[in-house]
Computed example of a mutant assay.
Amino acid sequence: MKDLLFDVNDGIATITLNRPNARNAFSMQMIELWIQALQKVRDHDDIRVLVLTGNGRSFCAGGDIKAMKSGKGFLDLTGYEKEDFSSSSLERKNSLWKHVQRIPILMEEIDKPTIAAVNGDAIGAGLDMALQCDMRISSDQARFGEGYVNVGIVPGDGGGYYLPRIIGIDKALDLLWSGRIIDAHEASKIGLITKMVSHEELMVETNSLARRLADGPQQAIRLIKRTVYQGLKTDLRTSLDMVSSFMGIVTEHPDYKEGLSAIIEKRKPDFE
């Protein structure tokens, strides 16, 4: 079986991490298929929303700790084989950059909504992958943690970038320095997840949100995403200048006229 499954159904793409017996820990095949799937999501306009989830009891455990201990392959929290890390620090850096770090770069290039359906433990790089999504819907059985410090390494997959932006610097450092595991209730309290639901309702809730976004005005949704993320990197004047350009674009799109008509006629809009 493939270590990652990719499916597109009526505008909603779903990436399912598929190593349930290994808690969906990374493998080289998983990373390669992940990159290919993200490229398709980025480049195909018929895909409107991306959902990321895991098969089995875990969302993603990051690196394969059992493989590390057995010596069969040095799968640390980046997920790469021993030979990639044996020669020099530069080669180890380049291996990260060419493989697993392509995932957050591709995620940043996707203008469409991305949702993590966290079905179980999201640990280390697994948590980082959930953080890369725009929203995180979590099972009440899920647990979260940044385990890098426990094996004496640094977060190599974006945790040090995303975590403080989502929950604040002090709370991020608490999780990163302690390596402790928190449950979904604490994750909800500190703002790590968007919403917590019962385990049984996780995919129902996630698919309902994905459907609502997929049926919405796509150009407006994508430009709103750009506005939010670019706004984190620019000053107010630059952001307002950009969004005024966006407004000029969307008000010429058929979705704008359809939205106005639907409000006036008190009906559900039928966006393109």
Rank of each mutant, 00 (worst) to 15 (best):
G63D: 03
P155N: 14
L223C: 00
E146L: 15
E146D: 02
M1P: 12
I115W: 02
I182D: 07
I190T: 00
G156H: 09
I31S: 01
E258Y: 05
Y229Q: 10
R136E: 01
T114V: 02
R42G: 00
L5H: 14
A61K: 11
I224K: 06
E200W: 10
P20N: 06
D241Q: 07
P164A: 05
L176P: 08
I169N: 01
F144I: 05
D128V: 01
D134S: 02
T194W: 13
F246A: 06
S198C: 07
F144E: 05
R92I: 04
I169S: 08
Y161M: 02
G179P: 08
K189S: 01
I35T: 09
D45G: 00
H199T: 11
G62P: 03
G158F: 11
D3E: 03
S86D: 03
I181M: 14
D111A: 12
R136Y: 03
H199M: 00
F144W: 07
A262W: 13
L33F: 07
E108N: 15
V100M: 01
L131M: 10
D64S: 14
T78R: 09
E91H: 07
L163Q: 12
L213C: 00
L173R: 12
P20Y: 13
M1N: 13
A117G: 09
V51K: 10
I190P: 00
S86F: 10
R211G: 00
N24T: 03
S261T: 03
V41E: 01
M28R: 10
I181H: 09
L4V: 11
A220Y: 09
Q230Y: 14
E252G: 11
I47N: 02
H99G: 02
T14Y: 09
V228P: 01
C60P: 05
L17E: 12
C60V: 04
A220M: 07
G152Y: 14
I123T: 10
D183E: 03
R92Y: 12
P269T: 04
L163N: 12
G73M: 14
